[in-house]
Design a binder for these strands. Structure first.
Lengths: 232, 232
DNA sequence: TGCTCTGCTTGACATTTATCAATTCATGCG
DNA sequence: CGCATGAATTGATAAATGTCAAGCAGAGCA
């Protein structure tokens, strides 16, 4: 990997505190690649040869079974993905594809495991990252099992509004078909769900969403930090 | 905690390799308690004061939202739960209640974090445990999003059969109402789903399930190691 | 034995969600 | 500009799932 990329990788929680020698060892074996949109980076079931880091663009994590497919998460810069598979040296449970033109760093899994064994600071950082991922997954699971699709959409919109700094109007960061898959519904149903939110002051025009009265929407959505706050 | 319990706790992957001094420090601050059935041990939203270890009996992890409740996992001896909350010093995302009379060890979270910071072997063991939990959660999530309730039940039964050593007939380890909640359906629907599996050689009598022809059932269930193999 | 409790099952019905087909809409391109 | 493409929407319908109410069955107990 060219040294010009070191600072941005180093700025990740995962790498920011570790020994410089170990960091440089990790980087030396790695490389950065640019991918066009819609390229499969990894596929579930494969063995995990590299830890991946999204440096630019965005990557969709998804899974398939019996000819069905579902989107599980979107990874945005700068974060890692499939850390758990790398650590356990186990097969990927999810596939990953670029959503747009994206830069991805690849660090050999074996190097990660080696450094993990000798750098306690790095190991602790991994624990923090993993526990965050775990809790995120628990929250998604609760969202899925406890809410109807309309409620999931309502809460999703409120989260996006927060991400957009609380603006009344904001852009959906993703295609609607993919959003539907992420929310566990069909594109047709997502369309209807948007209409179903109109009585709660939600208006949609293309990718532009307006929530005129967030408090009104919250009476339906009933957001909870134990499901919707992805920062804790 | 009485020293008589040390060996069984020590036998956990999480503790088996760590420094003896550190292990004893952890144990000294801990205690063991016996609980009757249906006792709430922790409740979601509370701060995580203790890492819990199930020594005997069984514990249900569940979550609530808006007056709805769903069962997320069952913890059986000897395993820990809510490790991620302990490590992050964050609120519990799930509640836990005893399903039967159960013995539980409680280790102060602050002690776990302290030892975690000074014992690299322990930190690594935590990583392994956490990554296992994470992958388990991903699998549950895929199960939920990619399969119908009938398919989830079919695969659940095949997993239970494996757990029971592959016997044609085995016992459900849990109440049907809780199984329904775990599988993300109502008890009524679970009843109907069992009937729906009769053409696939599944017979139910109370808690006793017979799968006459597992291959037949598999044509419906299409089990996949990337969803159903909880050991990897 | 009968009683009571609780969980399970069943049936009728309502709601939610998916599927299929057709149409509209936006976008890029020759 | 017109056309082709793929996404989004809409309507009609079907399938899956939930809800409500009633009945059934087994466990514990007097």
């Amino acid at each position: 990997m060219p040294e010009s990329h070191y600072p941005e990788v180093r700025s990740l929680h995962l790498f920011s505190e570790m020994e410089d020698d170990n960091f440089r060892t990790l980087m030396r074996g790695s490389y950065v690649q640019n991918f066009p949109p819609q390229i499969d980076l990894i596929h579930e079931g494969e063995s995990s040869d590299f830890l991946h880091i999204v440096l630019s663009g965005s990557v969709d994590l998804y899974a398939q079974w019996n000819n069905r497919e579902t989107s599980i998460a979107t990874v945005r810069p700068i974060s890692t993905f499939i850390l758990a598979a790398t650590i356990r040296d186990a097969p990927y449970l999810m596939s990953a594809r670029t959503l747009e033109k994206s830069g991805v760093a690849l660090i050999p899994s074996q190097d990660v495991r080696d450094i993990f064994d000798i750098d306690a600071v790095f190991a602790r950082a991994i624990v923090r990252e993993l526990s965050q991922c775990y809790r995120g997954m628990v929250k998604s699971h609760k969202d899925m099992k406890l809410r109807t699709s309309l409620e999931r959409l309502a809460n999703y919109l409120l989260r996006q509004q927060t991400r957009a700094g609380g603006e009344t109007t904001f852009e959906l960061p993703t295609e609607k078909r993919r959003l539907a898959s992420f929310l566990g519904m069909t594109p047709e149903n997502l369309s209807r769900a948007f209409k179903g939110l109109r009585p709660y002051s939600v208006a949609v025009d293309g990718n532009r969403v307006t929530i005129a009265d967030a408090d009104d929407l919250k009476t339906l959505a009933k957001p909870s930090p134990l499901i919707d706050d992805y920062s804790s």
